[in-house]
């Protein structure tokens, strides 16, 4: 894979980011999510506890015990009422974010729950633990369970435009599910280990990041795939922009962006954005605009504009490696979780 070193359009000097507040969750930020109304930020530490911060002041609103042996993922329900957490204790927990507080504990079905994610309409929560999926109602009722897969499920993603379809990654490729049937709807087989999946907002592509330093584009209708080689390391960072034109990928220090417009990314040269000196750990396209956020092991947070500026719009160095980052709803603020557990909220540039 050769990369185009410059984008198109104007260059300009990157600005730094204005800090709003800084907090701390005590250990590596394993999960970071904004509440749907943008008023709170929940951050989990790899050692367990989950802290919910007031997005404006940084005040600690809730200190949740999380999962004693480590929290792996967070997901906030679209109606804002429930925060779901997944942990290495084999549990999923639903934390009430309304006045009453309280929580409910669900069994993931294996010793380690990798992921929990609300459906786009908020009616279901899916959890992935070991080789199986479980589907829950917000009241904690178990609705469905998949048959055990041949290999541990590494990621589960809802189709963005549907609350009826799921994609999971594992060793062996990509699997599509229609919850209700214990068997998969379709399998897109590939002899390798896929680590993460990202469904394009229009549902056309499912991208996977893979253990052997590749990215796959699966066309969800046909099951055909394109394989992109040349990443220096395994790829665990993927983000689509809202129009489904750009897929941003990590897999090393460069941020590599594929253009899926026109004939698609096949045979094309991706855009490369280079500022990080160490591996990129997280990527996020804005929820509205064209801007792309990247955070690296080197502690750098960068804001890019694929298709616009060739250089960074903003660069901000932190004292810790960046573990997780996310745009606030409305793209006005950015939350960054550090590998030392610090949490910082910045104004968007």
């Amino acid at each position: 894979m050769s990369r185009v070193r410059t984008g198109t359009g104007r260059a300009g000097k990157p600005v730094s980011l204005a800090r709003v507040w800084t907090g701390d969750v005590g250990s590596y930020a394993s999960g970071l999510v904004w509440s749907p109304d943008g008023k709170q930020v929940a951050v989990s530490g790899i050692e367990g506890p989950v802290t919910v911060f007031d997005a404006a002041s940084g005040e600690r609103r809730h200190e949740l015990s999380g999962h004693g042996s480590g929290t792996t993922a967070l997901s906030w329900s679209p109606d804002g009422r429930l925060l779901a957490s997944a942990g290495q204790d084999g549990k999923v927990r639903l934390w009430s974010m309304t006045g009453t507080g309280g929580s409910q504990e669900l069994n993931g079905g294996s010793a380690w729950v990798e992921k929990a994610a609300w459906s786009p309409d908020g009616r279901y929560l899916v959890s992935a633990a070991g080789r199986r999926l479980r589907l829950w109602k917000p009241d904690g009722t178990l609705l469905w369970e998949s048959r055990d897969q041949q290999s541990t499920i590494t990621d589960v993603q809802w189709r963005p435009d549907s609350s009826r379809e799921l994609a999971t990654t594992a060793y062996g490729g990509l699997t599509l599910w229609k919850p209700g049937s214990p068997e998969p709807a379709r399998r897109f087989e590939w002899k390798g280990s896929s680590l993460v999946a990202a469904w394009s907002p229009n549902g056309k592509f499912i991208a996977t990041g893979d253990q052997d330093s590749t990215v796959h584009f699966w066309i969800s209708k046909t099951g055909h795939d394109l394989q992109m080689y040349g990443y220096p390391t395994k790829v665990r960072e993927l983000s689509w922009n809202t129009t489904s034109r750009y897929l941003a990928t990590g897999g090393g220090p460069a941020v590599t962006v594929w253009d899926c417009s026109g004939k698609g990314p096949a045979g094309s040269q991706p855009l490369a954005f280079e500022a990080h000196e160490d591996a990129v750990n997280d990527l996020a396209f804005g929820l509205r605009g064209p801007r792309l956020l990247s955070g690296g092991e080197d502690g750098l947070v960068a804001v890019w504009e694929p298709g616009g500026r060739s250089g960074a719009v903003a660069l901000q160095a932190l004292d810790t490696g960046v573990a997780r980052l996310a745009w606030a709803p409305g793209d006005k603020r950015i939350a960054v979780g550090g590998s030392d557990g610090t949490v910082t909220v910045f104004e968007a540039p």
Partner: peptide, 9 residues
């Protein structure tokens, strides 16, 4: 849990 993966390439 023992899970052996082959590396594709």
């Amino acid at each position: 849990d023992e899970e052996v993966f082959e590396m594709n390439n």
